[in-house]
Amino acid sequence: MTTEATSPTTAVEVVLPGRVEPDELVITRRSLPPLGSGQALVRVDATGVSFAEQQMRRGKYYDQPPFPFVPGYDLVGTVVDVGAGVDRTLLGRRVAALTKIGGWSSHIVLEAADLVDVPEGLDAAEAETFVANGITAWQMLHRIARVGVGQTILVHGASGGVGSTLVQLARIAGIRVIGTASARNATAVDALGAIPVDYRGDVPQQVRAMAPEGVDAVFDHVGGPGIVDSFRLLAPGGTLVAYGSASTKDHAGNSRLPVLKLFTRLLWWNLLPNSRSAHFYNIWAGKRRLSRFRRRVAEDLGSVFVLAAQGRLHAQVAARFPLSDAAQALELAESRTVTGKVVILPDLEL
C-alpha cells in the first residue's frame, strides 16, 4: 500500500440498519481497511439518492445485501491514495464510479479499474447526476433500443433522474420524445424538449393521439399492470425497455417476485409471433464479463460527460443535502415532487 501523510484512516458513513423510515438512518464512523493491490481510496465529493436506495430501504431491491449496510449507488470523488500496482498519476484526479452500495460515505475504497475520469469544469454534484442515470439512459437508448433520428419514443417518468437524462439524450440524437410526468412537472418536461403527458390521465389515449401508428420505443420503470399498455403502444418493429417495477415498491411480500413476473412477461412477448421486442435492462447484467463491462461503462459514461462538458446535456439537480442530512435527502426524493436527482454532499465538520 502507498501511504500518504494526508490519507485518512476513518470514514463517516450513513448506515441503513434495516427496513426503517428515513429518519432511522444511522451515522457512524469506522476505520478504513488497508488498500489492497489495484485499489484506490476515494474522497466522496458527491453521491445521491436514486430509486435503488428507496427500494433498499424497504428491502425491495432485487439483489441488495443483507442489512445493515451503507447505501449509495454511485458517486463522484477525488482519489486521495492508491494501492500497489495503481498508477500514482491517479492521485488528485476527480473520478466517477458505480458502487451499488457504499456511496453514502466520506471515503470509500474502490477498485481503480472501476473509476472513470470526470472532465474538468464539471461541478461534482452536477456530474453525479449523470453517473448511474447517464449510463442507464445511454445504454437503453443506444445499445438496446437503438432508436434512430426522426423516430418517436415514450419515456415514463420523464422528470425523474433517469427520465430527464434520457429525454435530453434522445433530443440530442434527433429523436421525438413523449414523456409522462405529474401535472406539476409538465413545464419541466416541456423545457427538456419532450411533449408532456399527465400520467394520471389516460396515457395510451394521449400517446395514440400523438403517434397513431405507435411509438418506436417505450422506456418503462413503472412495471406492474401498466407494462401491458407500454407494449401495446409500440409500432411494428418497436422496442420496449423495462428497467424497474416502481409501481410495486410498497407491496408486501417477496421482493424478487414483481421483477420475476415482469421478466417472465417480457420473455413471453418475445416468443409471440410479432415484430416487437421487449427487454429488461439491468445496469449490472454484463458484469460477468468484467473487462467488457468496465470498458462499456467507461465509454458510455465518457460520452455522457462529453455532452455535459459541451453544455449540450444539462444536469437536473433537484436539491443538495449534506451527508449528515441524508434522511431529509431520502424523504425529499421519495416525495415525488422534484425534477431530477437529489444529491448528497460531504459535511466539512464531520
Rank of each mutant, 00 (worst) to 15 (best):
T2P: 01
E4N: 05
A11M: 08
V14C: 15
E24N: 06
V26H: 08
R29Y: 05
R30P: 00
L32V: 05
P33W: 08
P34M: 05
L35N: 00
G36M: 09
S37N: 08
G38H: 09
V42M: 03
G48M: 02
S50R: 05
F51V: 10
F51A: 11
Q55C: 07
Q55V: 12
Q55N: 05
M56P: 05
Q64A: 08
P65F: 11
F69M: 03
P71K: 10
P71E: 15
V79W: 10
G85M: 09
R88F: 13
T89K: 14
L90P: 01
L90K: 07
L91P: 00
T99R: 05
I101S: 15
W104S: 06
S106Q: 03
H107I: 11
V109G: 04
E111Q: 09
D114K: 11
L115Y: 06
P119R: 13
G121Q: 14
G121S: 04
L122S: 07
L122P: 09
V131M: 07
N133F: 14
W138N: 00
L141D: 06
V149N: 09
V149G: 11
L154A: 01
H156R: 01
T165Q: 02
L166D: 04
Q168C: 05
I172G: 09
G174M: 12
G179N: 10
G179A: 10
R184T: 06
R184Y: 09
R184D: 14
A186C: 06
T187A: 13
G193I: 09
D198G: 04
D202M: 05
M210W: 13
E213N: 10
V215A: 01
D216Y: 04
V218F: 00
V222K: 04
G223D: 12
G226R: 10
V228R: 13
D229E: 15
S230F: 03
R232S: 06
R232M: 02
L234N: 00
G238E: 03
T239E: 05
L240P: 15
L240R: 02
V241Q: 01
V241L: 05
S245F: 06
S247W: 05
H251K: 03
S255A: 10
L257C: 06
L257V: 04
P258F: 03
L260P: 00
F263R: 04
F263G: 08
L267S: 08
W269D: 00
S275R: 14
R276T: 07
G286W: 14
R288N: 00
L290S: 11
L290R: 10
R292C: 12
Q310N: 15
Q310A: 05
G311N: 10
A315H: 13
A318D: 04
F321P: 02
S324V: 02
Q328T: 03
A329H: 07
L330Q: 06
L330I: 11
A333C: 01
T337G: 11
V338P: 02
